[in-house]
Design a protein around this nucleic acid. Structure first.
Lengths: 333, 333
DNA sequence: CGGCAATTTGAAAACGTTTTCAATTAAATC
DNA sequence: GATTTAATTGAAAACGTTTTCAAATTGCCG
């Protein structure tokens, strides 16, 4: 009645060899005579034997599974990273356990611990606000953890990112050069280092080199959602902004639609630049100009880095910066 | 040097009880004297003991992990389902191994087997073209499998969907009632049952009850991508269509933008209705009218159904149909 | 054909839990 | 206080692999 599983032992008996030998052929170990290998392979075929990965994991202390912690798969930015991660994971014979944290620190800690209890061989973490508590949990484990599209200068985890400050600085400079005296900076939570420490810094630097005074009325800290974006038009107008550097595509789409709905012409009366270059930028009208990030690659490279860490291979650069670009579309002049 | 793990045995020794007792308190078994429980709990705390889920899985034959097979997480439709799945999985203390199949039958089979070898307790499958080969693999295992947002009338797997034929029929009827004589049906691959057997059926039924002859020049079989959508305008005009029922939101967005770019006014000159009600429908201008599907809920209900199956609880309805709706936005008159 | 090295094999001990079943202890009854 | 019954405990056998180490076999050379 019960799913009668056939074990390595059954194969061994049927092929009249030892379990060890079966294990060897299953794992492609070279030290087995061709004739024996064939005999075993035939029995495996005949019995339709499939190794039990759990038992394997217990005996070998490797699960060929990695954990992926993501704020929300429903967000295109993270979905793209996740896809990159899964693809190279598959390439290296790993599977991923995917968990959504909602950027909630407690959830992150909880899920991190359940991943560790499941003995994942490594973890890819996404999410930018890394609390002291979480950092401690990171340090507690010997399981390698890499940050993907996420920064944390207090900790010392390997990471894969782009140079956020340079990218933002460059784009804001362009905006200023085009005559915008008052450029708004619309971002997600500032306590996330990626916004508060990096992007904001780029924004300030651009201002500074243009000799424009920093005005904190021009920075809008939001929750990164489309909805919030649609509501921002009045506030943006109230501070006489004529352009905005936005840190999230959905947020930017919201702002742009809010502008259009209020009959503010983009880009004629208001320019918008966004940051993540998800496919949304192309779907919206006008199409949004964006900093381009190799999203898929950030995920892919993170996972590749993780494989090295898991195999104790040397890594040349712990904190890799992938190249970014600037894609001009229709939301800028 | 090595991550010196502390085992249940260490706890047992330190608390001077047996492993069995420690196991009991860890698993919340009631048969243990309060005083003993406290003593053990204290030692667990002190030693920072964390149960090894792999060993647990081997001994108990339960991994509290379920597999999720999805064509592509990067697609909002599936991302939403996946999110619903993960949330209720978490609620029931499961984790999900997420794998992308690219709707590739070979990959699906391969990944299904690796999931099974990892001893997942159940599987949620998404993807509509279920080949005979895949169906056989489904039948081979006793591990419960539920189809989420995916149909297969040849097999007998539990599933969660909406009534696609009724939904499409209703929307196409509305289109016709509004005066459209030539309504196009733009869909993904027709060999996917959801398109070829269900939605197309609804389309035909609507035509029939309106006394309009079916014209296969009006059905456009595509690959479901935004890009393809943008290219469809000439073909649609060529057959004198004045409206389209589209089976995918990204595809619909592409068509709409293609129309706009060719100066065909939506909805005045061309009406568009889409099928998945992802948040994209709201982000695009004009906003797209859509069949509304409770995406998150389809995922959530699938997972809930799976938990019942995994616990051998009785299920009242194997093939659940969730309610759909019709959301009028700006792409229809 | 004997001796030695290299190649193949197998026995058995991990791996860290859960679970069964019997033994022990505590509680209840008269 | 002696029995009976119920509640707690522990010993040890799974669970299905990998891995170590020694034994057996094979091949090679002179």
């Amino acid at each position: 009645m019960d799913k009668q599983t056939i074990t390595i032992y059954d194969v061994a008996r049927e092929a009249s060899v030892s379990m060890a030998t079966v294990s060897r052929v299953v794992n492609g170990n070279a030290n087995v005579k061709p004739a024996t290998r064939k005999k075993v392979l035939d029995v495996i075929e005949k019995l339709d034997y499939r190794p039990n990965a759990v038992a394997r994991g217990l005996a070998s202390k490797k699960t060929t599974t990695v954990g992926v912690i993501v704020p929300d798969v429903t967000n295109m930015y993270f979905a793209s990273l996740a896809r990159g991660i899964d693809d190279v994971a598959t390439m290296y014979k790993y599977n991923i356990i995917l968990t959504n944290s909602d950027s909630n620190s407690e959830k992150e800690i909880k899920v991190l611990n359940t991943l560790l209890s499941k003995q994942v061989d490594g973890i890819v973490f996404m999410g930018n606000e890394i609390t002291e508590k979480l950092r401690e949990e990171f340090k507690r484990t010997k399981t390698p953890i890499v940050l993907a599209g996420s920064v944390d200068d207090e900790g010392d985890n390997p990471s894969v990112n782009i140079d956020y400050v340079a990218a933002v600085q460059e784009e804001v400079k362009n905006l200023i050069d085009r005559g915008n005296k008052r450029v708004a900076f619309v971002c997600g939570p500032l306590d996330q280092a990626i916004n508060g420490k990096y992007r904001l810094k780029g924004y300030k630097q651009a201002l500074k080199s243009a000799g424009i005074a920093y005005d904190d009325k021009l920075v809008f800290e939001t929750d990164d959602t489309y909805k919030t974006g649609t509501l921002l038009q009045p506030a943006l107008m109230a501070v006489n902004a004529t352009a905005a550097m936005v840190t999230d595509d959905e947020l930017a789409a919201g702002i742009m639609n809010g502008m259009s709905d209020a009959d503010v012409k983009v880009p004629e009366q208001f320019e918008i630049i966004t940051s993540n270059d998800t496919k949304l930028t192309e779907m919206v009208r006008p199409k949004m100009s964006s900093i381009t990030q190799p999203l898929y690659d950030i995920g892919a490279v993170s996972m590749r880095l993780l494989t090295k860490l898991m195999n104790n291979e040397p890594v040349d650069e712990k904190n890799v910066l992938l190249p970014y670009g600037l894609m001009k579309r229709e939301s800028t002049k």
